[in-house]
Amino acid sequence: MADRILKKDNLGKLVASVNGNGGRFIAPVLDARQVVFKDVTKAEEIVTEYILARNSYKEYVFPQTEVVADFTVEKHGVDLKSREVEARETVVFGARPCEAASLSSLRAIFTWDYIDEFYTKREDSLVVVTVACTKADDACFCTTVDLSPESRAGSDLYLLETESGDYMVEAITDKGRAFVEKYKGAFTEGSGKAKTLVMPEKIGTIDLEKVSARLKDKNHYDDQVWARLTRKCIGCGACTFVCPTCHCFDITDEGTQFAGERRKNWDACQFDTFTLHASGHNPRHYQHQRWRNRFMCKFNYYPEKFASKGCVGCGRCIRVCPVRLDITEVMEEFSR
């Protein structure tokens, strides 16, 4: 049931009002011929014909790089200053239902006993405006991981495109309702005829229960099959950077020994130095062991430890992989 209509002619008003209030409006735009999430100031920049943005919008809650502290080393000690996140209203327009479902996974990690406020403050001020999918490609497999274009989880507003290019708006959360109220000038009464949603076909040869049981059985951990299926991986890490649930990062100092910043930077479990000990020993020496870690993280650690989805089936890792390593093929193998 749609609560309101967002007319395409009113989108510009919404973009301007959010920006005018000091907020950020993030939407899919064309950049180097790719559709990516970026800050927009004008509705004309927004792309509507796309399947998924190439990047996940996780970078607006968990930036690629961010300063956590500044230091200067003085003669008689160190001057250390904490950075605090300024919570700024951030609207992500045009998220897809699969990636909307990933926020609770990231939150589970960033609030596991210790609260990472760099993440939580950003997520708390994030408004996820999902536009349901009227297009899909062969890499989409949300329905195989129990999601679909109809999933509402993680969305604050859930939008259906109408035949005339407007949006029927359903407010899912209190945050979503407050958002509609705050910008009521842009959301009007009315209705329209929704375009048909496109359901990616469920991959029949995949059984998540079987995948899960297989991973839980520690006797299978050293199976040759890992090496066989993932040998071609070159460890570039691209799959982790585009993935909406990958959360690994490094903490490094940048600057000189006299002044600089301490930063959290995205990192990837696919890199050879990721787990390398100072002694030279590396628990994940071979690339297939690193790939196994990523798969375990998605289909064992996230669901078993954090009761959340490690993979939302967005297919980004499949589209971006330079050697065409397809995560669903591994899921199929473990469904036998």
Partner: peptide, 22 residues
């Protein structure tokens, strides 16, 4: 194990499903 965050966030100290730092 190699650690960066020490508080169960950075994702590198795990031995299988066990986070050594936490």
């Amino acid at each position: 194990n190699k650690m960066k965050c020490g508080v169960g966030k950075c994702g590198r100290c795990n031995v299988g499903d066990v986070y050594v730092c936490k």
